[in-house]
Design a protein around this nucleic acid. Sequence first.
DNA 1: TCGTTTTCTGACCGTATGGTCAGGGTTGAG
DNA 2: CTCAACCCTGACCATACGGTCAGAAAACGA
Lengths: 214, 214
Amino acid sequence: MTASDRPTKRLQTRRQNEQAILEAAEKVFAEAGFGGATMQLIADMAGLPKANLHYYFATKEELYRKVVSRIFEIWLHAADTFDNAPGPVEGIGAYIDAKMDISRRHPFGSKVWASEVMHGAPVIQDYLETTLRDWTAGRIAAIQRWIDEGRLAPVDPRHLLYMIWATTQHYADFGHQIETLNAGNPLSEKQWAAAKESVKKIILRGIGATGFPA
Amino acid sequence: MTASDRPTKRLQTRRQNEQAILEAAEKVFAEAGFGGATMQLIADMAGLPKANLHYYFATKEELYRKVVSRIFEIWLHAADTFDNAPGPVEGIGAYIDAKMDISRRHPFGSKVWASEVMHGAPVIQDYLETTLRDWTAGRIAAIQRWIDEGRLAPVDPRHLLYMIWATTQHYADFGHQIETLNAGNPLSEKQWAAAKESVKKIILRGIGATGFPA
DNA sequence: TCGTTTTCTGACCGTATGGTCAGGGTTGAG
DNA sequence: CTCAACCCTGACCATACGGTCAGAAAACGA
């Protein structure tokens, strides 16, 4: 057993602190925006002195970049469901499920991403131009194949993707509005399930997914 | 003719300046967020000294509130199409058209609204709880009526509305991402039209709107 | 135990921000 | 023409921010 394998107290603390900082930062960035977020607030929320933040993350930008990257990774993995599907109903259905789950469990991350893109993606433009562009091209091809096979109505795959992204993320990004329109209460377990089903039903029927019950 | 009817030079200048400030503010707030926006930048963009801004709008918050209110008004009027429609295809179709047009012509406003809601609506919470809540209840009732008449599939009107909001606003709020995925170019006239048609087709078919061609 | 490396933190700094204000300029009614 | 009301602005202020740093404290290998 080498020294690096054993989780020394140092390494353990480091990981704990980094994790605490990242979680606090995600929340603060989501709630206040990059400009409105302060290192002091993040530090307080993470339970650390401000100077300690700068020990782990040199600048505010660097911390922010890490936060955005994390979310992007989660989103990418969520799309795995897409690939191993026998058909559009299962593939797209599972993708919508996965994205709805992410909206529920990572609302802060979704908001940070939305904010970043809305401000012109100053920090993650490279991701958009490489990873996301490639990913999108692949899924569009997959959807087009289904259309060519007659398993979907001839819709523009690109706009279908945008609709899925927009709708699923709406439940995170506009969660406050939805909550307000739900008599001020967060969606219950049942309501989340109903939302999922509604979204899937409308979209799957909307693209004429073969085998989807009318 | 009373004095207030004649547009004196004073009134004219006042209106011009207020307009210039509001437009500049909308853009700056959209691009930098409330926290990231500075009065100096807004002043420069409006072509006025910073102190002049504070003559017209006492505080940054007051200016921001005016900006958000303006957008809200535009959105409310866009929904008029909904009411005078003979059926769901015309009503919802026209509503989607109107919202897509707003996304195209007022992308900054849409972003400011999105940002405000994402941050918990600290400034316009009262709008959400009064005007928006009432508006939503009315449209939900209208959609439910169509469903009861058998002119729509039995979908949850609430989630249908959310989907329309999310999708149409996505083209404004995530315009930068869409542009990047469009080889870096803004959507052309034709592409906007295609987007509109795609959105309408999927949603109208998705809710089984009677008379909508499969 | 000892010396070294890593981790931590209170105090501090330069800067930029929102907002103020005194005073000068302009407009328009009488 | 006069004068009061309104409009404009350079200079200024207090505050809060991101970031720095010297040095204390803790952890570690030997």
